[in-house]
């Protein structure tokens, strides 16, 4: 078991390093030049001489490998360098944006799981086939809804038409409602689909009639036997989608004008602010790797058969 944990943690570290390297190489290969974008504006009146001095200051003159090692070392120490766009430390900009996104992502994910569980279990419990069919069609609909469109639609309906949620101002909780909904709807779909399929599949297992033969009710069978077996594949999918939340928040935060990591990413891409982009890439992969590590470690707890294999 200890070996299993150590191996998983080691793999996670490896994935992180690979993500950092791939991110660094890709950003380095990008044709744009962030220094030029910011400083070539004639109004600043900088000479090519001065621009190349600025470049050297940001470490742009180093050979690629030195730059890579320098940046990697910085990341390991927790220093992400300076934003070229604003000149402030990347850490500061992240620290500013992260809490907003963390709130949004956590609430969105929780809501997505809730929606998925309600859909899948209602479908598993229902005995009328049209209701079941209708419930199972919902995830396909959800997954086809583009986030930007859903966001605009929600603002239109709830803020402008019904006036339920203020567009500007309002308490932090009120401001969260619509973006959370926008984020939750599309990511609930794959979880609901896998969970519903898992429930169906567990129902065909021979142990289900045996539990029924003990005199168990439908509810007892669903919650005490089917649920725990069906949740395993859905957990994997949930772990993967959580990682996508960072990407999903780009659109949502832009639509709702929230200053989070998604917004920061968008700005950094526009300004070709390489240090910020690299930090976002590493942050996103860290979240992804940690969540999936947690899922991996949870698996043997939920399914004792995997404990032996681990």
């Amino acid at each position: 078991m200890t070996r299993y944990v150590l191996r998983r943690v080691g793999q996670a570290a490896l994935v992180l390093w690979a993500a950092f390297t791939a991110g660094y190489v890709l950003l380095w290969l990008l044709p744009g030049d962030s220094i030029l974008i910011k400083f070539q504006n004639p109004e600043l009146g900088l000479s090519p001489q001065q621009i190349s001095e600025i470049r050297a200051y940001y470490g742009g003159g180093d050979p690629p490998l030195v730059g890579y090692l320098h940046t990697l070392l910085g990341f390991l120490r927790g220093g992400f360098g300076y934003s070229i766009d604003t000149g402030t430390p990347v850490v500061e900009r992240l620290a500013e944006a992260l809490p907003e996104t963390a709130k949004l992502a956590t609430a969105g994910f929780a809501l997505a799981v809730l929606i998925a569980v309600v859909i899948a279990f209602a479908a598993g419990y229902s005995r009328t086939s049209w209701l079941r069919g209708a419930l199972l069609a919902v995830p396909s609909l959800f997954i086809s809804v583009p986030a930007f469109w859903l966001g605009i639609l929600l603002i239109q309906v709830f803020s402008f038409r019904l006036g339920l949620v203020p567009v500007i101002g309002g308490s932090p909780a009120q401001q969260l409602i619509l973006p959370v909904l926008t984020l939750a709807v599309p990511i609930s779909a794959p979880i609901a689909q896998v969970l519903a399929r898992g429930i169906d599949q567990v129902y065909t297992q021979p142990f289900v009639p045996v539990v029924a033969a003990k005199g168990a009710s439908r509810r007892w069978i669903l919650w005490r036997h089917v649920a725990r077996n069906a949740v395993l594949p859905a957990l994997t999918v949930a772990g993967m989608t959580f990682g996508e939340l960072i990407a999903g928040s780009v659109v949502t935060e832009t639509v709702f004008g929230r200053n989070g990591v998604g917004r920061l990413t968008e700005q950094a891409v526009n300004a070709q602010d390489t240090p910020v982009m690299l930090a976002v890439v590493v942050l996103a992969s860290t979240v992804f790797v940690l969540v999936n590590l947690a899922v991996d470690l949870l698996f043997p707890v939920l399914d004792p058969r995997l404990k032996a294999a681990a």
Binding site: F207, V210, V211, A212, K214, G215, R228, L302, D303, P304
Partner: peptide, 24 residues
Amino acid sequence: MESIRGAQIGLIPQDPSNSLNPVK
């Protein structure tokens, strides 16, 4: 029927390998 099953009629199923819940 739930009150009868298990109490008045018991069942021994066919395939012991899959007839028990693997996670309990």
